[in-house]
Every structure is written in structure tokens, then in C-alpha cells.
């Protein structure tokens, strides 16, 4: 039994410090208020204790100013709580642009994480010190919640949509990763560790996972295995929209609406293609619901993102081949299909 008392958890991110400062403000305000109230009650209770059954206390004046004062002063202090809390929350909701992306899939009862370089981990997450990390998270089943107390960061992980969280580790070490949203029988077993490593050490760790294929390349294999490229052609106009340069751009639908092609849009278009049909195209794509897992989807999304990395040079009209496709031959697309096995299925 660890008998040492501590009142603040480890601070391992920039946000952690901000949250702790806010906490100190909150605690000070609360202590002053409750101390004042308790002292007053105690004082009144002793001073005005009943000394005889025949006491007849007189009504005390009830100045309006007093009522106003104790309504407005606490409210003012609470506005500070609101603004302070909201500014931290706002910061939490906005990952910096240079953040490295890591995918997280929650399922009963484990955390699966995928690095862009292809490393996959279960109930573990290795990240470099000092670099902002953006998590894109989804769940295969029920709602989970990704919680790292040392980072003061928590966000729910929902089935059927992507949520994000980010943090910038400021301290190397091993930290708890918890599932904070009750998710069924082994909820308390859905815990893991976040390892914050010195950048050089992290590079070594990444290199150690040589057997892993990058997400883009797994996604590309999957794209070919599922025969997506038959219709979504990049060399000439196909029956389906060209996906090069698609990611992050607005897309016009047959109904006249515009949607931004983000992760959620791509996910929906794979699982439920008829929900949003791009203007100028027929609703001919079959649904891939049940054929692809959440992890497959993340690989496909990452692949489609990679198609858009050089949108200027690879505009759909010219049909220029983006770098990712140039690697096609070496990645051995057709061979992976001919083996008849799903390319992602080999590992873990």
C-alpha cells in the first residue's frame, strides 16, 4: 500500500500546469467562502444561543444592498472561473497545426493505437517529448473515454464518429491511460500506459518496429484490395470521383449542398455511400459496411489524405500522379490482392 499522500497528480503537459493553476484559484475561492460561512454560523450559533425559553428575538433589517452584494460578488468571482476555464477548454479543443497525428480505436476492453509510420500498439502509446500529439479517435462498440490524468486531458471516444484530443508532453516517463466512460464488464481493465520518450529514443523505438508498414501504404493496399481504384480512377475520368486532392476540400452534392471532405465524410462515404452523392455522379457505389473495420477505415482515410498532399501539382484535371501512387509498383498492390488475404490482417 502506497501510503504517501499527494494532492496534485504529476504534471506532464503544458495544459496540466494551466489546469492546476485554475484548480488553485478554485480551491482558494471555495476555501475562503466556506470558511467565512462556517465561521459565521459557528459565531452566531454560539453568540446567539438560546439562553431562556422566553427569548423573543426581534426581526433584523434586511437591507437590499446586502442581498445584492452576496448575489453579485460571488457571481463576479464565478465569471472569472468561467472565463479561465473556457480559455483552457478552447486551447484543448484546438490542436496546433504541426501536431503529429495518431489514431486511437477503443473497443471493449482495450485501446488500439496506430502511428502514421505503421506502429500499432495495444494499451500502450509511445510519443516523443515536446511534440504536440493529436489523437483522432473512434470506437468499435460502445462509448469510451481517453483519459491521461498527467496530461489533464480527457475526451470521449464514440462509435460512428471521430473525436480529437491533443496534448504536448513536457515530461518523459510512463503515465496512466484510463478509460473514463463506463463501457461494460471490464471497464476498469481498459487501462494502459503512455510512454513519453526523449525524441532520439522515440526515433529508435519507431525504427524498432521495422515490420510495420506505414498507414498510407497499408491504406493503399487496402484501396486496391477492395478494388476501389477500378472506379475511383486517377489516370482518367472514372465512374466515381477522383480522390486526388480531395481531403479537406468542399465537395458539391447532387442535392446542391456542400460538405467538407473530412475524416467523417470519407468514413460515411465508404460505409453509406448513398447518403451523400457527389454532383455529376451516379449512386452506384456499394456499401462497405461490415467489410472494413474501424482500423481499415483509418488506413483508407490516411491514404486518401496522402493523395491530397500536393493538391496544386496533382489537380484532378491534369491527372498528375501523386507520389503515393508512384510507389504503387514497389508496394506490390496486385500481389497483395492475389494472396487473397487482407493486407492488414498479418499483424497483431
Amino acid at each position: 500500500m502506497n501510503s504517501s499522500f499527494q494532492f496534485f497528480p504529476e504534471q506532464a503537459s503544458a495544459t496540466a500546469q494551466h489546469v492546476d493553476h485554475l484548480a488553485i484559484y478554485l480551491i482558494v475561492v471555495a476555501t475562503i467562502f466556506s470558511a467565512a460561512i462556517f465561521m459565521l454560523i459557528l459565531y452566531f450559533a454560539v453568540k446567539y444561543r438560546r439562553r431562556s425559553e422566553h427569548e423573543r428575538p426581534h426581526a433584523t433589517p434586511e437591507p437590499m444592498a446586502l442581498e445584492m452584494a452576496w448575489s453579485i460578488i460571488p457571481f463576479g468571482l464565478m465569471i472569472v472561473m468561467f472565463v479561465w476555464g473556457a480559455s483552457i477548454y478552447f486551447e484543448m479543443a484546438r490542436p496546433p497545426n504541426d501536431a503529429m497525428n495518431i489514431y486511437v480505436v477503443g473497443k471493449q476492453w482495450m485501446w488500439k493505437t496506430q502511428h502514421l509510420e505503421g506502429q500499432r500498439e495495444i494499451n500502450e502509446l509511445h510519443i516523443p517529448l515536446g511534440r504536440a500529439v493529436r489523437l483522432t479517435m473512434t470506437s468499435e462498440d460502445v462509448i469510451h473515454s481517453f483519459f491521461v490524468p498527467a496530461f489533464r486531458e480527457k475526451f470521449d471516444v464514440l462509435p460512428g464518429r471521430y473525436t480529437t484530443a491533443w496534448f504536448k508532453p513536457t515530461k518523459a516517463g510512463k503515465f496512466h491511460l484510463f478509460c473514463a466512460e463506463y463501457c461494460g464488464t471490464l471497464h476498469s481493465g481498459m487501462i494502459g500506459s503512455v510512454y513519453v520518450m526523449e525524441p532520439a529514443e522515440y526515433e529508435r523505438w519507431l525504427a524498432g518496429g521495422a515490420g510495420f508498414e506505414s498507414l498510407v501504404s497499408s491504406g493503399q493496399k487496402l484501396f486496391e484490395y477492395l478494388a476501389c481504384a477500378n472506379c475511383h480512377r486517377t489516370d482518367k475520368p472514372g465512374r466515381c470521383p477522383n480522390l486526388v486532392g480531395l481531403f479537406g476540400k468542399p465537395v458539391l452534392m447532387t442535392g446542391g449542398e456542400n460538405f467538407t471532405a473530412d475524416e467523417a465524410y470519407i468514413r460515411e462515404s465508404i460505409l453509406n455511400p448513398s447518403a451523400k452523392v457527389v454532383a455529376g455522379y451516379q449512386n452506384i457505389m456499394p456499401s462497405f459496411q461490415g467489410l472494413v473495420t474501424e482500423e481499415d477505415l483509418l488506413q483508407l482515410i490516411e491514404y486518401i489524405k496522402s493523395l491530397g498532399q500536393k493538391p496544386e501539382s496533382a489537380s484532378p484535371a491534369t491527372g498528375a500522379i501523386p507520389p503515393a501512387l508512384e510507389r504503387r509498383g514497389t508496394a506490390g498492390g496486385p500481389t497483395s490482392r492475389s494472396t487473397g488475404r487482407r493486407p492488414e490482417a498479418q499483424k497483431r
Binding site: 494551466h18 489546469v19 485554475l22 484548480a23 478554485l26 464565478m78 472561473m81 468561467f82 479561465w84 476555464g85 473556457a86 480559455s87 483552457i88 477548454y89 486551447e91 484543448m92 490524468p149 489533464r152 486531458e153 480527457k154 475526451f155
Partner: peptide
């Protein structure tokens, strides 16, 4: 708890 940044934690 109503203070957003604190509540997240």
C-alpha cells in the same frame, strides 16, 4: 465542475 478546463480533467 462548471469550469470547462477543470471539468475535462
Amino acid at each position: 465542475l462548471a469550469s470547462l478546463g477543470f471539468d475535462v480533467h
